[in-house]
């Protein structure tokens, strides 16, 4: 085979490889959506799950997923911004900064099941929070922090140093300059990262099965007293999420329609994650345009 033929062959092989990857994604999405979407109805999205018979929905799990996501973001975003500011603005080049960066790298590469086990040990048992939304939100915070922090740091570094000098030269502190000048300018990047992080959190299950628990007690959606155990807002109740539900019914479920419920739930989960991705792009672009517009 001469080099020309080899070149043609290689090109052909590479086209095939690219094609296979596209086919894999298309069949994954196709399978989930074709299997799942017919099962998705208003009833499915709003009614509670059933343990033994067919016809259960995912209403409580869906609510739990969003509520947990919200709480996890409320806890992790401020910490990530603070930590990102430290890394981008205050960290000096020394061994302490190296140690911090190494810690963040290790945390970001930890398997999420380890994060879940840590949450189980510390939040559920040590702090006696039990299987609860709060334990779950804290575990998701641990899971989410390294990526969010890195995203904040990167977004802040994108803003030119002269912006900080401008603030400093007016007698403002570095902190005021960062909070009131640099962060607003870095916002498109920060928001994009947060939404992508939210998508990741939304689909996470391994960190939750031993923290937020695997049961979804019935909720009374007319009771908005956060201290009542039946209230959706109660943060001390166990809360199975959508992702955990899919795992649960597939590994030990006894519902006759387990496959259909999982397909429906998977379709909802994937659509939600797709939505997060699209919103992240759109919001990022939109904000960026708004910031730089005249």
């Amino acid at each position: 085979m001469n080099p020309k033929q080899a070149d043609k062959l290689a090109t052909g092989v590479l086209y095939t490889v690219a094609g296979i990857i596209i086919v894999i994604l298309a069949s994954l999405l196709g399978f989930i959506l074709f299997q799942g979407l017919p099962h998705v109805s208003w009833h499915f999205l709003t009614s509670p799950a059933s343990t033994f018979e067919a016809g259960g929905g995912i209403g409580i799990q869906l609510f739990n997923s969003f509520y947990l996501l919200l709480l996890a973001m409320v806890i992790s975003v401020p910490i990530a911004i603070g930590a990102g500011i430290y890394l981008a603005e205050y960290a000096k080049k020394n061994w302490i900064t190296d140690l911090i960066r190494t810690s963040i790298e290790i945390l970001s590469s930890l398997p999420s099941v380890v994060v879940g086990l840590f949450g189980f040990l510390v939040f559920v048992l040590q702090f006696k929070m039990g299987f609860s939304i709060l334990s779950g939100a804290l575990a998701l915070t641990v899971f989410n922090l390294p990526l969010l922090t890195r995203n904040v740091e990167d977004s802040l570094r994108q803003i030119h140093f002269t912006q900080r000098e401008a603030g400093l030269a007016l007698g403002l502190s570095r902190w005021e300059t960062v909070v009131h000048v640099v962060i607003p300018e870095a916002l498109p990047g920060i928001i994009t990262g947060m939404i992508l992080g939210a998508g990741r959190v939304f689909g996470e299950a391994a960190a939750l099965i031993y923290t937020a628990g695997q049961s979804a007690p019935a909720l009374d959606f007319t009771n908005w007293n956060p201290l009542n155990i039946a209230s959706p807002l109660n943060i001390f109740r166990p809360a199975e999420t959508l992702a955990v539900h899919i795992w649960k019914i597939n590994s030990e479920g006894i519902q006759p329609d387990a496959a259909a419920v999982s397909a429906g739930a998977s379709a909802v989960l994937i659509l939600a994650v797709l939505l997060f991705n699209l919103v992240a792009r759109y919001a990022g672009n939109r904000l960026y345009k708004k910031m730089t517009a005249s």
């Binding site: 002269t162 912006q163 401008a166 603030g167 030269a169 007016l170 000048v181 607003p184 300018e185 730089t292």
Partner: peptide, 11 residues
């Protein structure tokens, strides 16, 4: 006060 080499108005 100080004015820099490259104009650096805030956004």
């Amino acid at each position: 006060g100080m004015v820099f080499q490259r104009p650096n108005p805030f956004a």
